[in-house]
Design a protein around this nucleic acid. Structure first.
Length: 723
RNA sequence: GCGCUCCUAGCUCAGUUGGUCAGAGCGUACGCUUCACACGCGUAAGGUCGCAGGUUCGAUCCCUGCGGAGCGCACCA
């Protein structure tokens, strides 16, 4: 028996060494598997693209969970002989990354992006991104993830940029991308427009003020934002509201807080007669709802009263004031004029930018949009419908299934997607202008063309990820072989951001699905059930956890009992438990190797007629377990497969079978001894194979000392077939 | 407002198409220097499966209502 078994299992001494051996073997690459004849040239394929971690920082436990789950499926399929490809990559994460670097520069040098200029800022961000990339890759490797590093991609690299420009052009030519002056979610802090999905709502207390524009104005209105009323063009009431019916259609002039306003009374069914006074002041330029109402009644959108820095643009006492200051000033003015009628506390949802925390200021801007309601040429369907269809038909299966309803619900409420951003880090909008001329997709060779200043929403490039990583737009072998991918595994929190966009982009571009199954994992929370965050200081660094307990332990702790779509809690205690389990396996191996060392000619798994009755039973139970585990993995119940294996190894194999073997080995019955020795060797060999996808390191390390070893690495050994 | 999920042992959670499913891990208590392992071994305590109805021969699992927790869209101006 090898000497290493005389000491307790030491993951830190083992894992890095084994990963290096795997990497060196080249067997993470399916082409190499074929070359080395561990996979057949015509074997079926299995592919996953890694959801690219953002280069904003280091990995967190959520990433560790993602890596653990995906590696389970990848290793399982690889052992089953599939040509298995797992493509690594990272995401430039435009806004997220730029805002982190900008904050850092502001803090350290007290400079903003304009002080540095576009070129210098991009240089700084590039450096930051590349440093994080190095850290991330190391963290990923530490987790044991068997990714094919020879195919690594970056959302902002040359190939991916070509894909972005090509898709942009195709969508533009199809009339699905348009440039329009529309109301957008403007983030004054990040100085950019953002999409509806990047807005998060926070509940805050506010004051609802009831007042009139002037003494002669016939109707009182209520609002939490009096300062916007200088931009009003109408008052809307419900068509059936008898209180106001007689005013509908009339127009009034007033001077509101030094600003002349012209107000028309309109009737609109969107107005809730029960709220406030039942009359709404309409500010088309600074509210999406008001913009829509204005559209319906032919009112102007042009009265803009707030600028990009959330300051007032009107003349008079409000000029240049921040909106919050202007609010107070308006209230003061209302009081002094005797126009304020009521002041009450209310709770409202305030829109904030998820990346910068800035309070969203809706305002009209010229931006690029993807039209989700326009028919796609040659398809006879809108992008919305193309997103719905594959999920509805079952071509794409979402696990857990109930997220399909959430997905449908989101699509129903979907508006056009604002894809241009006024930040510098990211894919520059591939549009060039020369006077009235416009060129899309490729930069014209002649002089005088100027490229659009804006960049694209980071999710535009992520949406192409399943095929851009495989070399598209080139007709590569990889693309032909591995697309559509088999599994997309990610957190449910980016179902809309990412999964929906991938379906949209792939359906439009390739007329096919990006993946067959979506496996959604939940959030990883701390032991108290709180979200892990920097501000709470309850972050767990996967590197610390693996250093302390080993990657195998971390993986098991993350996988066992973690049902898809459900948040989980993790604590060091849980991880510690699986470190003990790795050691338990080590000792099981030691016992078996020790007790079978002198048994000649072990034919693993081969049943002979002189096999002991008890061994026949044990082996048939092992077959049942093998079937069970295989089915569980095939049906995506890896949380259960992992738990069953843990239970089997510890409480069946160790507690019962090994214990009862002691007396057999101490006995005089030589046939029984030989029979049991063969059986134990079979059990160990089989257990290692079944556990390998979950705990790759310790199983590989033991396998390397197994007399039953029939492959260079357990990683490419065959998955046990049950009889 | 529309929609989704959850409420099972002290804690965290399983329970895969209704019938040995009342479970696991951790924790707790007591006892073990047993020659694979103290990163261990053995034994034990314990829950009317949120509440109330219904369907069924039979429900933790299906239906309805109620209560509590969380989440996603939309949004009240």
């Amino acid at each position: 028996m090898p000497e290493k078994f005389l000491k307790p299992y030491d993951p830190s001494a083992t894992e890095a060494r084994i990963y290096a051996q795997w990497e060196e073997s080249g067997l993470f690459n399916p082409d190499e598997c074929v070359k080395q004849e561990v996979a057949k040239l015509d074997a079926p394929t299995y592919s996953i693209v890694l959801p690219p971690p953002n280069v904003t920082g280091r990995l967190h436990m959520g990433h560790a969970l993602m890596l653990a789950i995906e590696d389970v499926f990848i290793r399982y399929k690889r052992m089953r002989g599939f040509r298995t490809l797992w493509v690594p990559g990272t995401d430039h994460a435009a806004i997220a990354t730029q805002s982190v670097v900008e904050k850092q520069i502001k803090k350290e040098e007290n400079k903003n992006r304009h002080d540095l200029g576009r070129e210098e800022l991009l240089k700084r961000i590039g450096k930051f991104a590349s440093e994080n990339h190095t850290t991330i890759v190391n963290q990923v490797k530490t987790m044991g993830a068997s990714l094919d590093w020879s195919r690594e991609a970056f959302t902002l690299d040359e190939t991916r940029t070509r894909a972005v420009n090509k898709v942009f052009k195709n969508m533009y030519d199809a009339g699905l991308i348009y440039r329009g002056h529309r109301i957008v979610n403007w983030d004054p802090k990040g100085q950019t427009a953002i999409s509806d999905d990047e807005v998060t709502y926070e509940e805050r207390h506010a004051t609802l003020y009831t007042f009139r524009y002037s003494k002669d104005f016939p109707i009182s209105i209520a609002t939490t934002r009096p300062e916007t009323k200088v931009g009003d063009v109408a008052v809307a009431v419900h068509p059936d509201d008898t209180r106001y019916k007689k005013f509908v259609g009339k127009e009034y002039d007033a001077v509101f807080c030094d600003v002349p306003v012209h107000i028309k009374i309109v009737a609109d069914k969107e107005v809730d007669p029960a709220f406030g006074t039942g009359a709404v002041g309409i500010t088309p330029a600074h509210s999406q709802t008001d913009w829509d109402i204005a559209d319906r009644h032919g009112l102007s959108h042009e009265v803009v009263v707030i600028n990009e820095y959330a300051r007032m643009t009107v003349d008079g006492r409000l000029k240049d004031k921040k909106t919050t200051e202007a609010r107070e000033a308006v209230v003061e003015w209302l009081k002094s004029e005797g126009l304020l009628e009521k002041k009450e506390d209310t709770v409202q949802n305030i829109a904030t930018a998820e990346r910068t925390g800035g309070i969203i200021e809706p305002m009209p801007k010229m931006q690029w949009f993807v039209d989700v309601n326009k028919e796609v040429p040659m398809r006879g369907k809108t992008l919305k419908e193309l997103m719905l269809e594959p999920v509805r038909s079952g071509a794409i299966k979402i696990i857990p299934e109930h997220f399909e309803k959430t997905y449908f619900h989101w699509i129903e409420n979907l508006r056009d997607w604002c894809i241009s951003r006024q930040i510098w880090y990211g894919h520059r909008v591939p549009v060039w202008y020369r006077g009235e001329e416009i060129a899309v997709g490729i930069e014209p060779k002649e002089a005088g063309w100027i490229q659009d200043e804006d960049t694209l929403d980071t999710w535009f490039s992520s949406g192409l990820w399943t095929f851009s990583t495989l070399g598209w737009p080139d007709e590569t072998e990889d693309f032909k072989t591995y697309h559509p991918t088999d599994l997309l595994e990610t957190g449910y929190d980016i179902l809309f951001f990412w999964i929906a966009r991938m379906i949209l982009m792939t359906e439009f571009t390739l007329n096919t699905i990006p993946f067959k199954t979506v496996y959604l994992h939940g959030l990883v929370r701390d032991a108290a059930g709180r979200k892990m965050s920097k501000s709470l200081g309850n972050n767990m660094d996967p590197l610390d956890v693996t250093a302390k307990f080993g990657a195998d332990a971390a993986r098991m702790a993350l996988v066992v009992g973690n049902t898809p779509g459900t948040d989980m809690r993790i604590s060091e205690d849980k991880v510690k438990g699986y470190k003990h389990f790795a050691n338990k396996l080590w000792n099981i191996a030691r016992f078996i190797l020790e007790n079978t060392a002198n048994t000649p000619q072990i034919h693993v798994g081969r049943r002979t007629s002189n096999m002991d009755e008890s061994d026949v039973k044990i082996l048939s139970e092992l077959d049942a377990l093998t079937r069970d585990i295989t089915t569980d993995i095939e049906e995506f119940r890896i949380y259960m497969a992992a738990e069953k294996l843990y239970h089997y190894a510890w409480h069946e194999l160790a507690d019962k079978i090994l214990e009862e073997s002691k007396s057999i080995f101490a006995g005089a019955d030589e046939a029984a001894r030989a029979s049991r020795a063969r059986t134990l060797m079979t059990l160990l060999d089989r257990t290692l194979r079944l556990l390998h996808p979950f705990m790759p390191f310790v199983t590989e390390e033991i396998y390397q000392s197994m007399p039953t070893k029939d492959s260079k690495f357990l990683m490419v050994a065959s998955w046990p077939e049950s009889k």
